[in-house]
C-alpha cells in the first residue's frame, strides 16, 4: 500500500509540474498584456514599460519560467498583478466557498441519481424509465448559466422562497448547488441504470431471489455494490466537470469562489493568479482520483493495492 502511494505521489508531482508549465506558457502566448490592461488606454508607453519591469515581464520567457519554478518549489507563487495581495492568498481565501459548492452539488447529484437509476433499471422500458432518461438528458443538456438565471427568476423573484445571490446560510447554497448538480445527475443516473440492468440478470441475483429475499435487500446488498464501481469512477471524473461548471454558476449566483476568481484573472491576464488557481484545481483533481482508486478496494474486496 505505501509503495503504491509513493508511486502515486511521484506521479502527481509530475502531473502538477506539467499543468503549471502548460498554463505558464499558455497565458503568456495568448495576446494581451497585463501591464497594458492595468495602465489602460490613458497610460504612456513608459508607464506600461515600467509596470512590465515591476512585474518582471520584461525578462526573456525561459528566465521568467526558471524563476517561477525556483520560487514555486519554495511555495512562493508571486504577487497577484491586480489584487494587491499574494496570488496564493487570493486563491486560498476562495477555496472554502468552491469546495462547499462542489461537495454540495455532488452530494445532491448522488442522492438524486442513485434512486432514479434504480427505479429506471427496475422498471426497464416502462414510461417511468423513459421519463427518467428524458429528464436526466435535459438536465445535462441545458446550459447551466441559463438554468441558473431561470432559477433566480422563479425561486427568488417570483416565488421569493430563496435568496437570489451571495453566500450565507443553507438557503443560499440551494440554487447554485442544484444548477451545478444537474450537470452530472444525468450521467450518473444513466450509469446506475445501465450497471443495474446488466447485473439483475446475473446468476447470483437470481440465486438471491431464489433463497427468498425480497427486492430491496437483493438490490441494495447484492446488485448495487457491483454496479457502483463505474459510478464512483465517473463521479470522481465528473468533479472536474463540476469545477468547470462552477466557473459559470459562481458568476451567476455571486458565489465568491475560485471559479469567479479564475475568470476574472484570465480576462485581466493576472498570470500569477491563473497559475495558482490551476495548480490548486489540478491538485484537487489528483486527490479525488486517488480517493476514487482507493475506494475501489473498499467496494470490491478483490482489489488490493501493493
Amino acid at each position: 500500500m505505501s509503495g503504491y502511494l509513493a508511486g502515486r505521489l511521484a506521479y502527481s508531482i509530475f502531473v502538477l509540474w506539467g499543468a503549471i508549465t502548460i498554463v505558464f506558457v499558455t497565458v503568456r502566448v495568448v495576446p494581451g498584456d497585463p501591464a497594458q490592461l492595468m495602465v489602460g488606454a490613458q497610460g504612456t508607453r513608459q508607464d506600461v514599460e515600467a509596470l512590465r519591469h515591476r512585474f518582471g515581464l520584461d525578462r526573456p520567457l525561459p528566465v521568467q519560467y526558471g524563476g517561477y519554478l525556483a520560487e514555486a518549489v519554495r511555495l512562493n507563487f508571486g504577487q497577484s498583478l491586480r489584487l494587491e495581495q499574494p496570488a496564493v492568498d487570493a486563491v486560498i481565501q476562495r477555496i472554502p466557498a468552491t469546495a462547499l459548492l462542489a461537495l454540495g452539488a455532488m452530494t445532491l447529484a448522488v442522492a438524486i441519481s442513485l434512486p432514479l437509476g434504480i427505479i429506471a433499471a427496475m422498471a426497464r422500458s416502462s414510461i417511468l424509465d423513459r421519463a427518467v432518461s428524458a429528464v436526466s438528458l435535459v438536465g445535462q443538456s441545458v446550459p447551466n448559466f441559463w438554468l441558473g438565471i431561470m432559477f433566480i427568476l422563479i425561486f427568488a423573484r417570483t416565488l421569493r422562497w430563496l435568496p437570489s445571490a451571495g453566500i450565507g446560510g443553507a438557503e443560499h447554497l440551494i440554487l447554485p448547488a442544484v444548477s451545478l448538480a444537474l450537470l452530472v445527475i444525468g450521467v450518473l443516473t444513466r450509469l446506475v441504470r445501465s450497471g443495474l440492468v446488466d447485473i439483475i440478470h446475473e446468476d447470483y441475483v437470481r440465486t438471491a431471489y431464489a433463497k427468498g429475499l425480497s427486492v430491496r435487500p437483493v438490490i441494495v446488498r447484492h446488485a448495487l455494490p457491483n454496479a457502483l464501481i463505474p459510478v464512483v469512477t465517473v463521479a470522481g471524473l465528473q468533479l472536474g466537470h463540476l469545477l468547470a461548471g462552477a466557473v459559470v454558476v459562481e458568476t451567476v449566483f455571486a458565489w465568491p469562489g475560485v471559479g469567479r476568481l479564475l475568470v476574472d484573472a484570465i480576462s485581466n491576464r493576472d498570470y500569477p493568479v491563473v497559475q495558482v488557481a490551476v495548480l490548486f484545481i489540478t491538485a484537487g483533481f489528483i486527490l479525488v482520483n486517488l480517493l476514487v482508486d482507493l475506494s475501489y478496494a473498499y467496494l470490491d474486496p478483490r482489489i488490493r493495492y501493493r
Partner: peptide, 11 residues
C-alpha cells in the same frame, strides 16, 4: 457584489 444582472435586479 452581484455580477449577474438578472440576479442583481432580482435582489
Amino acid at each position: 457584489d452581484i455580477p449577474e444582472i438578472a440576479a442583481r435586479v432580482t435582489a
